[in-house]
Amino acid sequence: MRTLFYNKYELKLLVKGEFYMATKSANLYARIEPNVKEEAETILSTLGIPASGAINMFYKQIILHRGLPFELKIPNSMPVDINTLSEEEFNNELEKGYADMQAGRTKNVNTAFAEIRKDYGL
């Protein structure tokens, strides 16, 4: 059996080539932050996907993965926010970076950014 999507409705293609419509009668009510809802729906609208379709896809991925379809983790540490540092703390961080460079504890910039994106889900 293959699953096709047509105009907001899920169609199942049976081996004989017959179609049937899957019923969509269950309701889901969720409270989310208004700005999150607005931003997500703007993106979904650009993609031509209604919010209900995206939620249905998300639930199907949960079923397929038998859990959330993405990794959840707490980063080991957060990057230093230089805006919160005093001048002395800032200079100490620069000295640490210089010492790392002198000791050869460096990474290629592409590798470093790839790791940052992975660690912080960017």
Results as ranks from 00 to 15, higher is better:
65 H>N: 09
68 L>Q: 01
17 G>T: 05
62 I>L: 13
10 E>L: 12
19 F>D: 01
116 I>P: 03
79 P>F: 04
67 G>S: 12
83 N>M: 08
14 L>W: 13
104 G>I: 01
41 E>V: 02
9 Y>P: 11
23 T>Q: 09
43 I>R: 08
28 L>K: 01
81 D>N: 15
83 N>V: 03
28 L>G: 02
54 A>Y: 15
94 L>S: 01
22 A>V: 14
93 E>S: 09
85 L>Y: 07
92 N>A: 15
47 L>G: 10
41 E>P: 00
4 L>I: 15
72 L>C: 14
120 Y>Q: 07
82 I>Y: 12
44 L>W: 10
33 E>L: 04
110 N>E: 12
120 Y>A: 09
88 E>K: 14
3 T>L: 14
6 Y>T: 11
98 Y>C: 02
13 L>S: 14
38 E>W: 08
83 N>W: 01
116 I>Q: 11
36 V>Y: 03
86 S>M: 07
44 L>Q: 04
71 E>T: 02
77 S>G: 10
93 E>L: 11
52 S>A: 12
22 A>F: 13
2 R>M: 08
31 R>D: 00
113 F>A: 06
51 A>H: 04
94 L>R: 09
14 L>E: 11
82 I>T: 13
4 L>K: 09
41 E>T: 13
27 N>H: 05
109 V>P: 08
11 L>Y: 15
114 A>G: 07
23 T>V: 02
48 G>V: 13
28 L>C: 03
85 L>R: 06
49 I>D: 00
119 D>M: 09
81 D>K: 13
101 M>R: 14
76 N>E: 14
102 Q>M: 14
16 K>N: 15
17 G>E: 06
102 Q>F: 08
16 K>C: 10
72 L>G: 02
41 E>L: 03
2 R>S: 09
4 L>Q: 07
82 I>W: 09
24 K>P: 08
8 K>E: 14
13 L>Q: 15
64 L>S: 03
106 T>S: 06
78 M>E: 10
121 G>F: 09
80 V>Y: 06
108 N>R: 12
103 A>M: 00
36 V>G: 00
46 T>I: 13
44 L>F: 15
45 S>T: 12
26 A>Q: 01
37 K>M: 06
23 T>R: 11
21 M>W: 10
38 E>Y: 07
19 F>E: 05
34 P>Y: 00
59 Y>H: 02
9 Y>G: 14
